[in-house]
Design a protein around this nucleic acid. Sequence first.
RNA 1: GCGGGCGUAGCUCAAUGGUAGAGCUCCAGCCUUCCAAGCUGGUGGUGUGGGUUCGAUUCCCAUCGCCCGCUCCA
Length: 488
Amino acid sequence: MAVESRMDKIVGLCKRRGFIFQSSEIYGGSNGFWDYGPLGVELKRNVRQAWWADMITLHDELTVQPGAPSTFDMTGVETSIIMHPQVWKVSGHYDLFCDMMVDCRACKSRFRADHIQSSQCPQKPSKCPGEHDSCQLTDPREFNLMFKTTLGAMGTEADAAFLRPETAQGMFVNFKNVCDSSRVKIPFGIAQIGKSFRNEITPRNFTFRSREFEQMEMEFFCHPSHSLAWYQYWRDRRYNWYINLGISKANLILREHAKEELAHYSVGTADLEYAFPFLGPGEYGELEGVAHRGDFDLRSHSEGKLKKEGESLVVEQGADGKPKYAGSGKDLSYFDDQTRERFIPHVIEPAAGCDRATLAFLCEAYYEDEQPDEKGVMQSRVVLRLHPRLAPIKVAVFPLIKKEGMPEKAAELYRDLKQAGIAAAFDQQAAIGRRYRRMDEIGTPYCVTIDGETMTAGTVTVRDRDTLEQIRLPMNEVVGYVQGKLRG
RNA sequence: GCGGGCGUAGCUCAAUGGUAGAGCUCCAGCCUUCCAAGCUGGUGGUGUGGGUUCGAUUCCCAUCGCCCGCUCCA
């Protein structure tokens, strides 16, 4: 058996301490689905909250943000997971995700059934798949990356609906509703956090590629002539969000897509990628894509599914000469009453994976170091150096020993912290050193210990997770101290 | 989905065609005045379903899950 890898240790810690479990584990597990445990749910909530606060709650619409072309508005929505089936036809997901596919058992390649005639056999490029002697093609099989369900108890194929493969369409189809109801003016953004579903062929690498996952997406609508500047603004701002929450610059890269790599509608896309431990040296996994989507989405939902023809996007025609998938027919243009100009806004989309961000923060935080025990012998220590704002528990309170009134005093402080809205823990079980280690392993940044001096002088020690240094504070200053650390 | 490897306790690892053990963790008690201490006791396991057999954790089949490669993406 090989030495346990860093990733194995992180996965083990996640299970051991209740961050992440495999879904339906007692029944043998369900591939590509994950459950967040008591600590994991807090960590992920904190990731979500950090994103939402940055995007919405703390956004200052009166001040020009550093690096931004102008002031802007931010709003949020929460839209349904099952949408009108036409949404996915117009967005392109239906065609992209619902193909009939043919596999070749000989060369292990997969081809779209309707593209066989124009594809090359990997073993003999001059021939089509199936024409080479050794080819062993399967029958065409439905290869559906969207989860299908049916509407209504008697649902037939005509009632087929899909679980959303991304949250973005919820913002596009509500563009007009938000404009009409919230007095926002362009430029502005609509943000949403929610579950999305993709029937991934090969879920892999812990929670990195799951079939059910949570996205944190924002669609930013702006004037076409300013779109490039906004693209650059959001790309850099999103990079800094991760850095400010503790991701090191050594492990995070901002990678601009090459022109060939861009989606059919995109003018520019950058990926924020993290050096996950399960990847090889120099390899990175995508945390977030920041895409310049032009006017593709709003035009599609207005006119019908678009395809690229030369340099422009045109409505894709069916065999009958009508649009292959009709749009809503609603006018999704925007009228600027200052400049008296009507235009279809361009869209900048930072689309982040919440589970991926959570996993990256966990990976980044995982450390093993050596600390002396009470006899001065070096012992290995596992510590999660999570940013205090992300830590599931912010502060733990310990009575040094289980008598002389210390547990009662500790409970008093614990209650004060809870009253102040701080996630606090109380532990009087086992030796003090063990309690510190337990908290290190789940990333609790501060441990407060009630000792003999607390009983006489009213002071406590506050021990720092990363430095192990202790300071003495009056007990009634602990709440303010922790609040200050969480703010800074 | 295809090909290869792997499934014994929460973790690390034993053993066996005939009652599955240990260390650590965890829980309870005692002790303990600052970094996984000590003592006592306790919980807990052969992924799942079939087959062969008097008897299967062990042999066979299937299935599920995990890891690696193809593939895909937030």
